[in-house]
Design a protein around this nucleic acid. Structure first.
Lengths: 146, 146
DNA sequence: GTGAATGCAAAACCTTTGCAACTGG
DNA sequence: CCAGTTGCAAAGGTTTTGCATTCAC
């Protein structure tokens, strides 16, 4: 069900962990594998349950730890919507999110660089931005559900 | 300390409540008054504590109820940042938020209509947007702290 | 009068923490 | 070998819920 990491993916993981002085553990490999296998912005609990299939003894706290580590390494982004459980996203390209209110699903939206540039221009001069988050809420009209 | 609502503000409140078939209660007036008095994006708990000064018996659950009602009426917006407590904002004009990571303070950023227009254009055709949220995280360089 | 709103306490929910045991480099 | 990581269970903080009481209309 869950494919192993390919050579490139494994390298990215090992490199990112090494760069921030973190160890490579089987749990981290599995959690990262789960994230890449199905890019549907899973919650911690969803990651946990998917990972259990591969590593039955895995603990929920460890999944929290792994994901936090990945966020710290810049391997993964958090996606929050109101008070719902935090979701995780391994897409590193700058992108926005669209949350379909009827399904709860979150879709990645490509974000043209010009828009990002324009956005930083609307800030007062003494505001230094580190990150920008853009999220849409709405519905998808049937046809191409994805 | 907390000014009463002026005529216009009280009318907005009553109108918005009436329009969605809600009752006007002293608790709702006070909670709304607190929100308008200090537009610093307070948390529920902050609203609660400020409101207690005017109405000592007020309950926290009621503050949650009032704020939820206002959000439902479109009188107030929620502002979420990661897992922190939800904050509330009575600014109805389209605007973005800038969160200063060193102080935790949230600032409103005016949002030019062109940018909103451009943003809706980056979505696939079958995605119908209801709301867009834009939030910056970063720091303000000393000088004009606010 | 009546359905909605309030107040209280308990419960729910997600996430974090403390700590002992284990393990990757 | 040993700092970093894991696993477990308990604690934490925010928000929601159930229910009796009160209130706005």
């Amino acid at each position: 069900m869950i494919q192993n990491l390919n050579k490139h993916e494994r390298e990215s993981l090992h490199e990112a962990l090494a760069k921030s002085g973190q160890k490579i553990t089987p749990q981290r490999e599995i959690v990262y594998t789960v994230l890449l296998a199905q890019r549907d912005h899973p919650t911690v609990d969803e990651v946990y349950n998917r990972a259990l299939e591969t590593m039955p003894g895995l603990s929920l706290a460890t999944v929290y730890n792994c994901l936090e580590t990945f966020v710290g390494c810049g391997l993964v982004r958090q996606v929050n919507h109101e008070r719902e459980s935090t979701r995780y996203c391994p897409n590193l390209a700058p992108h926005a999110h669209f949350r379909d209110e009827s399904t709860g699903r979150v879709h990645d939206i490509e974000l043209p660089k010009e828009i990002l540039d324009q956005l930083t221009k609307i800030l007062p001069a003494n505001f230094e931005t580190e990150t920008i988050e853009i999220s849409f809420q709405g519905r998808t009209k049937s046809s191409t559900q994805n």
